[in-house]
Write a protein that binds this DNA or RNA. Structure first.
Lengths: 234, 234
DNA sequence: TCAAAAGTGTTTGAGGTACACCCATGG
DNA sequence: CCATGGGTGTACCTCAAACACTTTTGA
C-alpha cells in the first residue's frame, strides 16, 4: 500500500481487492458490530468496517484472518465469505473489489487493548452509524445471512462462551430473529436435538437460583449431520 | 487482455478478477451444464467454465452478463453470485480472483448457433468432465447452492419454459434434489401454495392424454412474500 | 383395447404452538 | 419471606408422509 499515493498511474490502472470484515459479537443481550474510524485518507475519521487490501501473494481468506487477528488478537474464529461487492464505482478513488466476510466472535475473549489501540468500537446492531462507501449495505447483508444461516446451523454458538445457559441461548436467538420465543418450547426443542451436554455447574450471574450451564456437543452433531440430520430452530 | 502476454512485468504485478459463469439448464429430465473448450493458452483445448476478465470500468455483475450474452445470446437471465475463489495459487499464470456466478436458463431459448460457434457443450450434470483450475469445485458449490435455494424460493422455474406442466415441474425438483417425490403429495403441496395459474392448454408431448399447462403467478407470489409467506418444497 | 402418463383422497403420526404454574435461592 | 428468574407438562392442530386406483386418449 505504501506506493499507492506516489504512483498514480499504476493506481488508476489496476484492480484492487479488499477483504472487509463484518465482525459480530453478543453481549448483555444485544447483538453488536465492531467498527472503527479510518486512519487514512480518503474518508479519514469516518466509521468503517475493518479491512485491508488483499496482497498479491495472499489468499483472500488469509487476508481476512490477518485483519481479524490484527484488531482483536483472535485466531480460529468463525468466519465465512458473505459476498463480493464489485460495482465499478463503489470506491471513488480507484477500482477496488471488496470480498466481504463476516465473523462471529465471543465478545468475552477479544483483546480489549488491541481493539482500543485501533480506534475500534462495539456498536449495537440497531444503532450502527453511517459507514463509509457501501459498508452499511454489507452489514445488512451479513445480518440477513446470519439470520438465515442460524436457522439451520448452530453457528450462533460462536457468539456465546463455550459454557452457556439455555436462557442465554434463547436470548441470543431472540436478538438474531428479532422475535420473542416461548421458553418452554425453546427448551424442549433444543434438548430434543440431543446435542447439548448438561454440566454440573450453574451460572448465577442472572438469578439467585442459577441456571445450569451446557456445552454444545460438536462431535455428536457432526455425526448426526452426516446422516442427514438437520438442526433447525424456528 | 490484449497486452497480457506482451507486458509480463505488469501481468505478474497485478491482481486480476474474472467473472466465471456456471450455466445450468434443464432438458429431457436432466440437469445440464454449459461448458466450453478454452480457445487460448494456457490450457488451450481443456474444458472450462465460461468466463472473462472483469474490465476496470465494468461492474462484476455486468461482466458476467456480458459473458452470458456473448455465448448464449440471452439477457435478463436469472443469475446470482455464488462466491469468490481467492486462493493465491488458484491460477498458476498470475494472480486472479474468480467471482463465480451461476445462471439458470431456459434451455429452449438459447441461441444454438452462438453456442456452437464458441465451442460450447451441454453436459449432464452427473457426467461433467474434468475442468480447468478449480472449476469443478465451483460447479459442486453451485449445485449445492441451487439445491439449498430451490427449497425455499421458486428459482427452479427459471429452468422451465414459461408454460409448464406439473409433471415437468416435479421432474425438475427430482433432479435438483436427487430424490423421487410422490406425485400426489407434490401436486397437493404445489397447488396449496396458490401461486400456479392453470391454463386451458395441454401439453401432449409426453402422453396421449396430455397434461395441463400452468404459469407461475409472480405477482401474487411477491405480494405473499412481503407478508412473510414462505414457499417451501421438500 | 390397451399401454402409458395424468390426475385424484384419505389416514396416520410427528412435531410445532399455545398456554400457567411451581421451584430454588439470596438478600 | 419474597422477589426474581429457572424450569417443567399437556392439549390441540397442522402438515408431511405413506399409500392405490381411475381417467384419458392415440395408436
Amino acid at each position: 500500500m505504501a506506493n499507492l499515493e506516489t504512483d498514480l498511474y499504476s493506481v488508476k490502472d489496476k484492480m484492487y481487492a479488499a477483504a472487509d470484515c463484518i465482525i459480530f459479537g453478543f453481549d448483555s443481550g444485544k447483538l453488536k458490530l465492531l467498527i472503527f474510524r479510518r486512519r487514512v485518507e480518503p474518508l479519514k475519521g469516518e466509521w468503517s468496517l475493518i479491512g485491508s487490501f488483499v496482497r498479491l501473494e495472499e489468499d483472500v481468506t488469509e487476508a481476512a484472518k490477518r485483519v481479524l487477528k490484527e484488531i482483536t488478537g483472535l485466531e480460529n474464529v468463525f468466519m465465512e465469505q458473505l459476498k463480493t461487492y464489485g460495482k465499478a464505482d463503489r470506491d471513488p478513488g480507484f477500482r477496488c473489489l471488496s470480498i466481504a466476510q463476516y465473523a462471529l466472535i465471543r465478545i468475552d475473549e477479544y483483546d480489549e487493548e488491541l481493539v482500543e489501540k485501533h480506534g475500534a468500537h462495539w456498536y449495537n446492531i440497531d444503532a450502527v452509524p453511517g459507514l463509509v462507501l457501501d459498508h452499511n449495505k454489507m452489514v445488512q447483508d451479513a445480518l440477513e445471512r446470519l439470520r438465515q444461516k442460524a436457522r439451520y446451523q448452530p453457528i450462533g454458538l460462536n457468539l456465546l462462551p463455550e459454557k452457556f445457559t439455555i436462557p442465554q441461548l434463547q436470548q441470543l436467538y431472540e436478538v438474531i430473529y428479532q422475535k420473542e420465543l416461548d421458553s418452554r418450547n425453546f427448551r424442549k426443542k433444543l434438548l430434543s436435538l440431543k446435542v447439548l451436554i448438561k454440566l454440573d455447574e450453574k451460572d448465577k450471574t442472572n438469578s439467585r437460583r442459577g441456571a445450569f450451564l451446557y456445552k454444545f456437543d460438536y462431535k455428536t452433531y457432526h455425526e448426526l449431520e452426516k446422516i442427514g440430520y438437520n438442526f433447525e430452530i424456528s
